[in-house]
Simulated scan of single mutants.
Amino acid sequence: MSQQVDCPKCGNKELKKGIIRAALSVVHMFPENNPRSKSSPISSIYCKSCGYILESYIDHPERLED
């Protein structure tokens, strides 16, 4: 998680981590040149008050090596 301590949109200090889902499964990131290789889930940090997404990142970047 970044060093951000409050929401830049509303100023709330309660930030949460969540996963991005599509229908019934978690969205995954794949390497562009090999979409059938290993993948990693995508997580986000969001404001509990207004829902603003501060950042999104892949949980296991080492899995996306070429």
Rank of each mutant, 00 (worst) to 15 (best):
K48L: 04
P35L: 08
S40T: 15
C47I: 00
I20C: 04
M29H: 11
R36N: 14
V27W: 04
C47G: 02
E32C: 09
K48S: 15
P31W: 07
E32A: 15
N33L: 11
A22E: 14
A22Q: 13
R36Q: 08
S40Y: 06
I20K: 09
E32Y: 14
I19W: 10
S44Q: 09
S37G: 15
Y52M: 05
P41Y: 01
A22F: 10
Y46H: 07
H28C: 12
V26Q: 04
G51A: 08
V26G: 00
P31K: 07
N33G: 09
S43Q: 12
C50M: 00
I19T: 06
S44F: 12
K48E: 10
M29G: 13
C50A: 01
S49V: 01
K38F: 09
S25N: 13
S39K: 07
A22D: 07
A23K: 10
I45A: 09
L24Q: 04
I20R: 08
A22S: 15
F30P: 00
K48C: 02
C47V: 03
S39V: 08
M29Q: 14
S43D: 15
S39N: 09
F30T: 12
I42H: 07
K38I: 11
S40E: 07
P41L: 00
S25T: 12
V27S: 11
S44E: 11
Y52Q: 02
E32H: 11
C50D: 03
C50W: 03
S43N: 14
S39Q: 06
G51D: 06
H28M: 12
H28T: 11
S37F: 13
R36H: 12
S40P: 02
V27P: 01
A23F: 13
M29K: 12
G51L: 11
A23S: 10
N34A: 13
C47T: 02
G51N: 06
S43M: 14
S49K: 09
A22L: 07
S44L: 15
I19Y: 13
A22N: 10
F30W: 10
S39F: 03
L24K: 08
G51V: 02
C50K: 00
C50S: 02
P41G: 02
K38A: 11
I42P: 00
A23N: 12
N33E: 13
S44M: 15
S49F: 01
G51H: 03
V27N: 06
Y52K: 04
I20N: 07
I42W: 04
V26Y: 02
P31V: 02
P41H: 00
N33M: 12
M29I: 09
I45Y: 04
A23H: 11
S37N: 13
C47P: 00
P41V: 03
S37E: 12
I42G: 07
A23D: 13
S25Y: 05
K48W: 02
S40D: 06
S43H: 14
G51I: 04
S40L: 10
Y46P: 00
H28P: 01
A23P: 00
R36A: 11
I45K: 04
S44R: 03
V26I: 12
E32M: 15
A23V: 06
S44C: 14
S25W: 02
G51F: 05
L24W: 14
K38H: 07
R21S: 08
S37P: 01
S25I: 09
S43I: 06
S44T: 11
Y46R: 06
S39W: 02
M29Y: 12
G51C: 06
I20Y: 03
E32D: 15
Y52H: 09
Y46K: 03
K38N: 08
